[in-house]
Design a protein around this nucleic acid. Structure first.
Length: 244
DNA sequence: AAGAGCCCCAACCGCCCCCCA
DNA sequence: TTGGGGGGCGGTTGGGGCTCT
């Protein structure tokens, strides 16, 4: 039986008071971040060590950038999430001054909904909706305004595209456009067979390589499975750009 | 004005990983 | 080699504030 991380008896839970914050700040400024388990007692706090750590990391640290996320940060979060999934700490590591908790909250409360409204599954960054059959309306813009309205891709109705995380760092100027971040669809003109291969592939331009390298670096650190690369992808297959 | 419902975010919980004895 | 302890992480919760009716 694992011992609890701290003595539950006598520990305070819930919101931190100004006095507690000040005690924690004073202690860490004096002694630095050290053993969180013993910190509360040493600092005169009736808190669990984990609670102190969280409070410091997510709120009290002097280098924390507070306030709204700007568009560049949001873009980066989406791109990194496509690569790394829910590895919030890794994503936070690429956003100076932002914490994993903050990014996680922002994702769940803002970005998730945005992607869903654009017909993109926030879990895998793939499109939700069925694409029109080519012999009916090959160039009809699919509409999707909520998760409830999405349709699933049927095997007999496979779109012929690949999802590609186009990880360019260029911050183009069309940010005001509603279609920013939205998936762009290229249907195959050669074949009307629809293909469910939604592999994420990585174009070999330099900026992409740089971002991918970051992901690789973290992945290697954390032993995470490699994302599918172009080796899995038929080069003749049209590309669905996930990010423009 | 007030109550209901919704949303945001700080904080908690429990699991996992890594380090060290 | 293994087991325990500490730290870190991601999922979840709940309280408070805001908006709508």
């Amino acid at each position: 039986m694992r011992k609890p991380c701290c003595d539950k008896e006598g520990t305070i839970k819930g919101a931190w008071s100004k006095q507690e914050d000040q005690k924690l700040i004073d202690y860490i400024q004096l002694h630095g971040e050290g053993c969180w388990r013993s910190l509360p007692k040493a600092a005169g706090l009736h808190r669990c060590g984990k609670s102190c750590r969280l409070r410091w990391i997510n709120y009290l640290r002097p280098d924390i950038k507070r306030g709204n996320f700007d568009q560049d940060e949001e873009d980066l979060i989406i791109k990194l999430h496509a690569l790394l999934g829910n590895r919030w700490s890794l994503i936070a590591g690429r956003l100076p001054g932002r914490t994993d908790n903050e990014i996680k909250n922002y994702w769940n409360s803002h970005i998730r909904r945005k992607l869903i409204n654009r017909g993109i599954d926030p879990n895998n960054h793939k499109l939700y909706q069925t694409f029109p059959l080519p012999n009916k309306a090959p160039h009809t813009e699919p509409s999707f305004d909520s998760m409830n309205q999405h349709q699933t891709l049927l095997p007999s109705n496979k779109p012929s595209f690949r999802v590609v995380a186009a990880l360019d760092d260029d911050d183009d100027d069309d940010r005001s456009s509603d279609t920013h971040h939205s998936c762009l669809l290229e249907t195959s003109s050669a074949s009307h067979q629809l293909n469910l291969d939604l592999t994420i592939a990585f174009p070999a331009d330099s900026s992409t390589t740089r971002l991918f390298t970051l992901a690789e670096e973290d992945k290697n650190k954390n032993n995470m499975p490699k994302p599918s690369t172009s080796e899995n992808v038929d080069e003749s297959t049209p590309i669905l750009l996930l990010f423009q």
